[in-house]
């Protein structure tokens, strides 16, 4: 891992951007999110970590309402999540999401992938959208692939395009759900570097990942989830070297020794 450490203390907390209050969600009998309270400040980078099935993806998906919640409140920039319709679509555009499986639109070129939302959601002019898309592709290092289709790109390139696609909407916050878990090892760093760059530029980020290098160098805070609950929150160094809860100790010993 390249040694890029954000000056964590410089990030001025200018208010809370994402606030979850006693959020509960069930999948049938499974209580997948249990009384989740979580506040993310503007410019903060929070890494969410925890065993598989602990509800990390559901948490991310609830934040831009790809999943509904049963009770509790979620606000983005002071506004509660709308129920449906136009307001919800607008909110989703403000919350960028990057998925484990990239999910690029397979029938559109890389450039078109990054232009689509700008044109159809932000109603941007085509020329303006293309310029911005090219600039973003350049920023994530795949400018030369602009006219190819997703299937012609490596996983690492696809994920960087997916990040560019999300950034094209000028999101207030970016959610990353295990963005490097589906990648071959040699491609993980190229994606993490883009994310680190984003963090340095002050993007508010919620990142589900087990990449401890990233957590240590880019995160302001680590949130540890198990069985649908937030079990522990701490700054990265403290969490990794000195976890308080038994669940966290147990989990860390497993991911460190595999």
């Amino acid at each position: 891992m390249t040694e890029v450490s954000v000056a964590k203390d410089d990030v001025a907390a200018t208010g809370d951007l994402v606030v979850l209050k006693s959020v509960n969600k069930h999948f049938g009998a499974l209580h997948v999110l249990q009384d989740i309270d979580l506040t993310i400040a503007r410019g903060e980078v929070v890494v969410v970590i925890g065993p598989s099935g602990s509800g990390k993806s559901t948490l991310c998906r609830a934040i831009n309402r790809l999943e509904t919640i049963d009770s509790g409140d979620i606000t983005i920039d002071g506004k509660p999540l709308p129920q449906e319709g136009k307001a919800l679509a607008r909110l989703r555009a403000d919350v960028g999401m990057v998925f484990q499986s990239f999910n690029l639109f397979a029938h559109k070129t890389v450039l078109e992938n990054v232009m689509l939302g700008q044109i159809k959601v932000r109603k941007a002019d085509k020329k303006v959208a293309e310029e911005k898309a090219r600039a973003l592709l350049d920023r994530v290092g795949v400018a030369t692939q602009a006219d190819k289709y997703p299937a012609q790109l490596s996983g690492g390139q696809q994920q960087r395009v997916a990040i560019a696609r999300a950034l094209a909407m000028d999101p207030k916050v970016m959610l990353f759900d295990e963005p490097t878990s589906a990648l071959d090892p040699e491609m993980i760093n190229e994606v993490l570097e883009v994310m680190q760059q984003l963090a340095r530029e002050g993007m508010t980020m919620i990142v589900v990942t087990h990449e401890m290098g990233f957590a240590r160098s880019a995160a302001n805070r680590v949130v540890f989830m198990a069985d649908g609950r937030i079990v522990e929150e701490a700054v990265p160094d403290q969490f990794f070297s000195n976890p308080r809860s038994d669940r966290a100790k147990d989990f860390l010993s497993k991911i460190l020794h595999h």
Partner: peptide, 8 residues
């Protein structure tokens, strides 16, 4: 889902 996530 990705399409919904960008606000379509």
């Amino acid at each position: 889902e990705a399409a919904r996530a960008i606000g379509l």
